[in-house]
Write a protein that binds this DNA or RNA. Sequence first.
DNA 1: CAATATAAATTGTTCAACAATATAGATTCG
DNA 2: CGAATCTATATTGTTGAACAATTTATATTG
Lengths: 222, 222
Amino acid sequence: MIDASHVPAEDQPLTAHVAGRIRDMLISGELSPGAKLSEQHMAAHFSISRNTLREVFRLLTSQNLLTYIPNRGVFVATPGEASVVDIYRVRRVIQKGAVQAASPTHPALSRMKDQLARTGAAQANGDWLKVGTINMEFHRSMVDLCDSPRLNAGFELVLAELRLVFAQFDDTAHLHEPYIALNKALLASLERGDTDTATKQLDDYLLRSERSVLAALQRARS
Amino acid sequence: MIDASHVPAEDQPLTAHVAGRIRDMLISGELSPGAKLSEQHMAAHFSISRNTLREVFRLLTSQNLLTYIPNRGVFVATPGEASVVDIYRVRRVIQKGAVQAASPTHPALSRMKDQLARTGAAQANGDWLKVGTINMEFHRSMVDLCDSPRLNAGFELVLAELRLVFAQFDDTAHLHEPYIALNKALLASLERGDTDTATKQLDDYLLRSERSVLAALQRARS
DNA sequence: CAATATAAATTGTTCAACAATATAGATTCG
DNA sequence: CGAATCTATATTGTTGAACAATTTATATTG
């Protein structure tokens, strides 16, 4: 998703623009899970009216990025264990669908290959944040194999939520590092057209990843 | 989805209430695909302010029920062939996941059985609208097998969109009638725990259903 | 120190206004 | 007569202020 970003973009409606900026603040960690977004404060910060801001809140709330409590306000979502379990349930269904829909000539595969290479570079540099980001792109590309805008959008949603899970950790290094090798093997299977093996490798990846995320979450909650 | 409906419900925020009422107008056909929803008109109709209404529009737009064109306004979505193809792609992925996650003791199965019975009754009465409604409930229950709120929500979205496809037809009778038998067989396989057969039956169902919907859409566009 | 009453801040919603954009209507020209 | 252009009108985009309802913070009391 190239995101001709929120720097000069004054073309689209204000609400979309601000929604993008808040999303950026979310993934950059500028807004931590659980933080309250006061209407007054945020409206002043973005120099927009409360009315317009509330439209933005509705948008982001419907994407599970913000949590809305009537009469109390809007908060950055703090996905817990239940959310994690559900997110991985969704991932299993959608990504399995993607693997099974994969054809060895699909352009998404070459994108995945490229991303894997860049992950390796970032890993060598010790830039774990970047490793995590590219790893997510890798899996997003995998879902591109479905050629379904709606599945892409849905998957995008759970990935964004998963980012909020990671935002609750201080140390994300070991959450991605061990899995690069698994991704490499998975991609190889896909390029070979070996769907069955790829499916098994995906299952293995998701199981391990879910386990370590859940463990990290419990550790962070102590 | 029990929907303690929009009759006396003055508890939840106004936006949620109005969103529900518009959704009702959509599925009841009171608002046809392509219709424009003027802010002024709608705000007056529901006796709410334009600002509040716009919050509602953002909500429904994010659910693909309304289409939002900047500076032009909000319209009832008119899903075309591309949408139908994509919707069925999503259905294949999610419902296949559901069938494969099914355990013969899952409570959703008994709900499906009940719905199938009611479909039969409606069919006998020639109430095709009801047949369609219950048929959709049947498939929604199927996705309940995943025990995933997020998959349920996502599936809900595409079903709502599919309803807007049907709303473009005058005659929906033959779109559901032939498939009740297939549903019956599918349910039997699930109760037997025969996942493989169920998967094949689901694929068959979706293929045929998609074909007839696409055909009906082309007919309606002539 | 806990419970309660009061004050302050925040959300929920409305209204009125105006700039920016789009639609419809009237006018002109080929 | 039909196509292109200009103008007037209606609609959306956004703001600011206002006020009731609810929540949170503060002060008071037992």
